[in-house]
Design a protein around this nucleic acid. Sequence first.
DNA 1: CCAAAATGCGTAATATTTACGCTAACAGAT
DNA 2: ATCTGTTAGCGTAAATATTACGCATTTTGG
Lengths: 222, 222
Amino acid sequence: MSVQETPQAVAVSVEVVVFSIRDRRLKLLLERRGAEPQRGLWALPGTFLRPDEDLDGAAHRALAEGTGVTGVYLEQLYTFGRPDRDPRGRVVSVAYYALMPSDRLRLCAAADAEAVGWFALDELPPLAFDHGEIVAMAHGRLRAKLGYSTIAFQFLGETFTIPELQAVYEIVLGKPLDRRNFRKWVLSLGQIEETRELRREGRHRPARLYRLADPGDIVFFK
Amino acid sequence: MSVQETPQAVAVSVEVVVFSIRDRRLKLLLERRGAEPQRGLWALPGTFLRPDEDLDGAAHRALAEGTGVTGVYLEQLYTFGRPDRDPRGRVVSVAYYALMPSDRLRLCAAADAEAVGWFALDELPPLAFDHGEIVAMAHGRLRAKLGYSTIAFQFLGETFTIPELQAVYEIVLGKPLDRRNFRKWVLSLGQIEETRELRREGRHRPARLYRLADPGDIVFFK
DNA sequence: CCAAAATGCGTAATATTTACGCTAACAGAT
DNA sequence: ATCTGTTAGCGTAAATATTACGCATTTTGG
């Protein structure tokens, strides 16, 4: 790095694209901005980076402060730095995306946000700054990563049935999958182990509950 | 983003991991640091972000100033922001990686660098800051992306033979490939078209020269 | 004109993916 | 107790993709 150049002071923020599946749809967590600029528009949960904090830490904090959510899967997505992307000045945003089970939420509006809400990905309100661009990239990455990693499991609780897992794939990919082939495929990954319990709901045969063999880990395959 | 927080001033830099294939090995372009801190250590070409510049622009500039190289394939890799990663203060680095043909270089040492040089990936000198970590991630990304995109072509000139392309794959993946299957595979991608010319070298049948059907574009497949 | 080296084509064996028939288990209605 | 609708779960065959590899072709150097 060229140390003879004078480093220019820049504000660094993190923004988090939080995905969850609710009502059989892929949804996004947004905060309504309670301050200028762009007051009233919806925006991604985010925060400025603190002096002694690393980027992952800031992303976790943004999520905790904005929504009370902790312990979810978080991954760095991309860094956005167009000079004019924030009217307040030069802000470089490191975007993250997060996946969480639908039940894991206690909504608590952040101090400077009038509201927090879930929005279906295909019915998003107008977003602040360049957050639409960030969301589009996060969605693409999520779809791609379903195919070669176990991130999809992050949408589910500790135990889950194979049909529930299949629903996650179908909702994110937007297309139906064959039950029988899906079952074979997911079992062949060697990532889940069966429990002794069943999930009974509806007037039909109950499904066996499974558990991640290595919870917390994201495994890559193929 | 939480606008009530005071944004902390942070220096933002870009660092570029430049890959090329020279002498049938995967090599990396490094600059020897000519100033403190860590003077004398080798480091990735990089620069601080300027006020009116976007991140991609800064990465291209870092490359042009450090090495005189322009017009190469550049892609954002990851952003590194551990609080203690640079002894000068808080520096968040947006890392990029670049691929270039082996012939495309006019080495010109940057003003503050005593030297610029190519190093085989498995014989790297000690690197400054956390650049070793950045290089490791770039190498992983490069290998992964060979499998589902046409980045490999960026290592070659405008025209190339199929065996030359195969050598790129073999060197990056570190394993031999079957000539006949490789040919079928690469032709089936529909990304290259044959020219009327041949490349003659050595005492053997000359190879046909091909050209990218859509030069500059990186195509994803599978 | 022969040997060496590398291109270029074709075909068989193997593995992976996809399609889909069929049985099992449960809830609730008759 | 039996029937019915619905979803879970198993197995098998067909289609597709990948891999292995034999062999003829085209060039150069001696």
